[in-house]
Design a protein around this nucleic acid. Structure first.
Length: 1045
RNA sequence: GCCCGGGUGGCGUAAUUGGUAGCCGCGAUCGACUUAAGAUCGAUUGCCGUAAGGCAUGCGAGUUCGAGUCUCGCCCCGGGCACCA
């Protein structure tokens, strides 16, 4: 018996595959021309499928065992898709510009270019051992001039485009200039420099001022991840611990905020994890609100105005003061009585670090909430445009300068922070929103009427059969309500009361409680019929009507109201009351919950003509009334597109002596060679030290690390194209990335920027789709067995080379896919890897035995891939074949869903069954079926599968087999036979009162009556049931029965 | 603080989405082979109990004939955001 020598076969086949170029991706033309000569696919055109890994940056650290996990996962997908007859694009390349390479270079005193070369070599050596099916001929490198030429090209496009808000699309800046020339007479009079400045406000790549982390101690500007917080809350450098200060310098920006809305709405169509979408959603942080102007007065004399941004314009009448950020531009222009105090405060704020400013402190007076500091601007007041009242103006650093308008209207009654602030400084609090009940006779309380209290239950009853809700129509007013009932003062059994009320008012008897709202719902309203204001406490319960059984209700009840089943969608029309659509929706869906101590949604009180309106309604109307504007704001800011570094793409612009910016005509603008790429001691990049460079007026900043990675997926489609970033035909053919695999750490960086660039390129009609990555999977981290990250620092790194050496690449691959769900982070265990290794050895052993027995009885196939119907040979065990087809189904579906761990588990089950068969009665599988199994194994363990496949063909010496035996990886993926995965008999559990008491075997799909007979005849069951009456008999088809006695 | 995920044997995990909890793998115990060890093969392996049976999916309730799965509250763990009006 031949031994399983993993090293030998892995090395052999890796060479063979490279020689035969079996992973070569076809161009769109080749694919169209070439019809597959493979069995089963003759005459059919290859469909494209794009599987992409996030490309690495060559940091020089070397791989640990966690790095390949994502690559293996995507490789499994790519391999299956290839076998399914797709033209698979599965490339690899390097994100070579940026900090990691530069840092390595500085540390090792080599040129970054050299550093990249070295690190790429190490990376490829390590990666090549794992047997990944990349088409290396498409390799790219972002620091290659042939590549960054196009990064620069895109930058220039961004520079000469602006965002047309109306068309929601990027347009050429020349269009905008034309528009200015036509519409604006002043335009002509502007100097070229002034024109340039004005256009900067529109360009998608523009120059502006931005803060950088300036570290005088190191004489360089630091990236955010090179900076950490010191013990006193001040910023210090990660390296050396020198103090870091924020200074503002001119830098290039990309106007990503123009695409904020599209970036947000685009998320919907993406098959990404909820988690990741959530992160991007938060990051974009869209909120819709209104900008409202507050006029200013000093001793009742008007003087200018302040604009505030609010999402709650409906609470305007509750705005009792304004708060400005300390940086607000209007402050120096005002005559303030306590100017000293104010300046002091502003100065303090300026010197606080971001951390100090945002530190959450407990309020000593209340023990909770946040104690904010602030100063009143004395001598100036604002006019509340709603009610005309004069209100004070404060400054406080809890208001951010760069969000909204840098000023807010404070509504302490309905906002927690405003509330805390008002409490601290004794500012007035006015409540303008009250809760209301949707099925109360909801009108705002009337002044002068007496208040009574009311405790009750409200029951929402669903009829799932026709999707209706039980409602009552009350005479004589015709009010529509849910079933309600009053509680006696000390009554607390809401369930019982609700059931009682339902019975009295409707007569229905059989109801199932679905949900009971935990907290009572307090509402205040005016009761028309009783002519009084009511303060109510309602307890809401949700029921499902089980059957129509009901008793007659009393005539008295009948005369009061009529029972109406209202279709769920019509509920809002039926229920009488002013209501909030959203709340009704939540109430009938049973997800309503109230938590806040402040009313958030309700009806307005104390708000003049808006009193009685719902919040939603009033929001628009009040905004209109005070001449405000509906606006949308985003948390996301424009992206700084410049680093004060050497190792990056030069910005392809130059400035003449007059300061006019010109585009570099001939791309690429190559990064000059420099002697020293180390920091210069100035807040500029090392390029500032290159005289010839500066003399030509070039930028001394370079592009950030994420520039090249924002479009690299397009370059793979056509990596050698000299004329375009990628050929039109190729982009049209591949469309977008079908499956993208990478870590979750790029959620707000790379993944957002790439989406932005793709949308921009889509506007330029370069990319056919809005989104670059249709489906995204985040592989989980592999952590060390000590629970920490693998790192040289902890000395807990497991090197993949060692694992490949002792266990083999196939074992490594199977183990990494088997250890747990692909997205979960899991601890590495070299102890457990023996499991997958034993599995592969078992496969090997089974194959060896199979060959011994093969001539005796097992061969019954001449063609691979066609032996999918039941084999006629009597010696073949059908149960094995059935199991195989179940396995085919499971593995195919699992790979599709990235559930690799369960796919492997099912293959283990299959091999275990086979192995048991072998030892007991001789081999019971024919060659054809065995090959089907090897194909399932091939994406996970490509080397052993290839070896056994070929060995099988040679041993059997079948000419037809050998002819087609190019490689198992080029064979057709197995299909399962639906007939073979159905069982004739099933074992079902028999429960008595929900406890399993017996297991019976029945023919599949027999009817309930038959099952009942068999179940009740069972000895065990008889013992439990005895002579008790069977109250209920539940049969879940082919699963279980439950006998209720 | 807010928003997402999670919590199942000694360990990594599985469970057709409301239907027999613990598949597969590791480890452990016993046995076979071996002079021996290892490898391999076989058996056992959630807990209590000789058994019948009982108890078990972070804790506590609820809905249901039936809950790991649904609802509510609480406790942990991981991640994201963190004065965004």
């Amino acid at each position: 018996m031949k031994q399983y020598n993993h090293s030998k076969i892995e090395k052999y086949w890796q060479k063979e595959w490279a020689k035969k170029k079996i992973y070569k991706t076809l161009s769109s033309q080749e694919a169209r021309r070439k019809t597959l000569r493979r069995q089963g696919y003759a005459g059919r055109e290859l469909k494209p499928f794009y599987v992409l890994d996030m490309f690495p940056y060559p940091s020089g650290a070397g791989l640990h065992v966690g790095h390949p996990r994502g690559y293996i996962g995507s490789d499994v997908c790519a391999r299956m898709k290839r076998m399914q007859g797709y033209n698979v694009l599965h490339p690899m390349g390097y994100d070579a510009f940026g900090l990691p390479a530069e840092q390595y270079a500085i540390e090792h005193k080599v040129h970054p270019r050299e550093a990249v070369k070295r690190n790429v070599a190490t990376f490829e050596k390590q990666l090549s051992m794992i047997g990944l099916s990349y088409d290396w001929s498409r390799k790219i490198n972002t620091s290659d001039p042939d590549y960054y030429k196009w990064t620069q090209w895109i930058f220039l496009k961004l520079h000469n485009h602006y965002y047309d808000e109306k068309l929601q699309k990027a347009r050429s800046i020349s269009e905008l200039i034309k528009k200015f020339e036509k519409e604006n007479k002043e335009w002509e009079k502007l100097s070229p420099l002034e024109k340039q400045d004005h256009l900067m406000k529109y360009r998608l790549a523009y120059e502006g001022e931005a803060e950088v982390n300036w570290c005088p101690g190191l004489g360089t500007v630091l990236a955010n991840d090179e900076v950490k917080e010191g013990q006193d809350g001040h910023l210090i450098s990660e390296r050396g611990g020198f103090p870091v200060e924020k200074i503002k310098i001119k830098q290039w920006f990309l106007r990503i905020t123009a695409y904020a809305d599209r970036l947000l709405s685009g998320l919907e169509e993406l098959k990404w994890s909820l988690h990741l979408k959530e992160i991007q959603k938060n990051w974009i942080g869209r909120s819709e609100g209104a900008e409202i102007e507050f006029k200013l007065v000093a001793r009742s004399q008007p003087l200018g105005a302040i604009k505030v941004f609010t999402t709650r314009a409906d609470t305007l009448f509750g705005a009792t003061y304004l708060v400005l950020s300390p940086e607000h531009a209007i402050i120096p222009k005002l005559k303030i009585e306590n100017i000293k105090e104010v300046e002091n405060y502003i100065n303090q704020a300026k010197h606080k670090t971001a951390e100090e400013r945002t530190r959450v402190e407990k309020d000593p007076s209340t023990g909770s909430g946040q104690a904010k500091t602030g100063v009143e601007l004395k001598g100036v007041k604002a006019i509340n445009p709603g009610n005309g009242e004069e209100i004070p103006i404060w400054i406080s650093d809890y208001v951010l300068a760069d969000y909204g308008t840098g000023a807010i209207m404070a509504v302490p009654a309905h906002d927690e922070r405003d509330f805390a602030f008002a409490k601290k400084y004794n500012l007035p609090i006015r409540e303008v929103i009250v809760n209301y009940d949707i099925d109360g006779m909801g009108w705002a309380p009337k002044a002068g009427k007496k208040f009574s209290t009311y405790r009750g239950v409200s029951a929402v009853i669903f009829n799932k059969k026709n999707d209706t809700v039980l409602c009552l129509r009350w005479a004589p007013q015709g009010w529509g309500t849910f079933v309600t009932g009053k509680l006696d003062p000390n009554e607390n059994n809401f369930k019982e009361v609700a059931r009682r009320e339902i019975y009295e008012e409707t007569g229905y008897k059989n109801l199932k409680l679905i949900y009971e709202q935990k907290n009572p719902y307090f509402t205040t309203y005016y009761h028309d019929g009783k002519d009084e204001n009511r303060f109510t406490e309602m307890h809401r319960l949700f029921f499902e009507l089980m059957d129509e059984e009901k008793d007659e209700i009393s005539d008295e009840e009948k005369s009061k109201h009529e029972i109406v089943w209202v279709a769920r969608k019509d509920i809002q029309k039926f229920i009488t009351a002013s209501y909030d659509q959203e709340i009704v929706e939540k109430v009938i869906n049973g997800t309503f919950m109230e938590k806040s101590c402040f009313a958030c949604h309700g009806i307005l009180v104390d708000s003049k003509q808006f009193t009685g309106m719902t919040s939603e309604e009033a929001r628009k109307k009040i905004t209109d009334f005070v001449g405000g504007q509906i606006v949308t704001k985003y948390k996301m800011r424009d992206a700084v597109f410049a680093r004060q570094r050497y190792w990056g793409e030069p910005i392809p612009l130059w400035r003449d002596k007059e300061g006019i910016i010109h585009e570099v005509k001939k791309l690429p603008l190559k990064l000059p060679n420099v002697k020293s790429y180390e920091p210069t001691g100035k807040a500029e990049g090392p390029l500032a030290g290159v005289k010839s460079w500066v003399a030509k007026g070039y930028e001394t900043n370079t592009m950030p690390g994420w520039a090249g990675s924002s479009w690299y997926y397009l370059r793979y489609m056509d990596p050698k194209n000299k004329k375009e970033l990628a050929g039109k035909k190729e982009i049209e053919y591949w469309q977008q990335v079908d499956i993208y695999v990478g870590g979750t750490e790029h959620a707000t960086g790379h993944l957002l920027y790439a989406r932005f660039w793709n949308k921009f390129l889509h506007d330029l009609e370069i990319t056919p789709t809005e989104e670059p990555f249709k489906e995204l999977h985040n592989q989980g981290m592999i952590i060390a067995s000590d629970g920490r990250r693998m790192s040289k620092r902890w000395g807990n790194v497991v090197n993949p080379d060692d694992i490949v050496k002792t266990y083999g690449a196939d074992t490594l691959r199977v183990y990494e896919m088997f250890m747990g769900p692909f997205t979960d982070s899991i601890a590495w265990s070299t102890e457990s890897i023996i499991g997958p290794r034993r599995f592969l050895e078992k496969v090997w052993r089974v194959a060896q035995r199979l060959q011994i027995n093969t001539d005796k009885k097992l061969i019954n196939t001449d063609k691979i891939g066609e032996n999918q119907s039941r084999n006629q040979s009597k010696s073949v065990d059908f149960s094995v074949e059935k199991l195989l087809h179940k396995t085919i189904k499971k593995v195919t579906e699992d790979i599709e869903a990235m559930r690799f761990n369960t796919a492997i588990s099912s293959m283990m089950i299959f091999v275990n069954a086979l192995d048991a068969e072998h030892t007991r009665k001789d081999a019971q599988i024919d060659i054809g079926n065995w090959v089907l199994f090897l194909k399932l194994l091939a994406p996970f363990a490509p080397h052993i599968a290839e070896e056994l496949y070929n060995e099988q063909l040679i041993t059997n010496n079948k000419k037809s087999l050998r002819k087609s035996a190019a490689s198992i990886h080029e064979q057709e993926w197995p299909k399962w036979n639906p007939k073979l995965i159905i069982d004739e008999t099933v074992k079902i559990a028999v429960q008595v009162n929900g406890k399993v008491r017996a297991e019976i075997e029945i023919l599949a799909d027999i009817n309930e009556g038959e099952v009942r007979e068999i179940a009740l005849a069972n000895e065990n069951i008889k013992k439990w049931v005895e002579d008790k009456e069977v109250k209920k008999f539940i049969y879940v088809k082919n699963k279980l029965v439950n006998i209720v006695i």
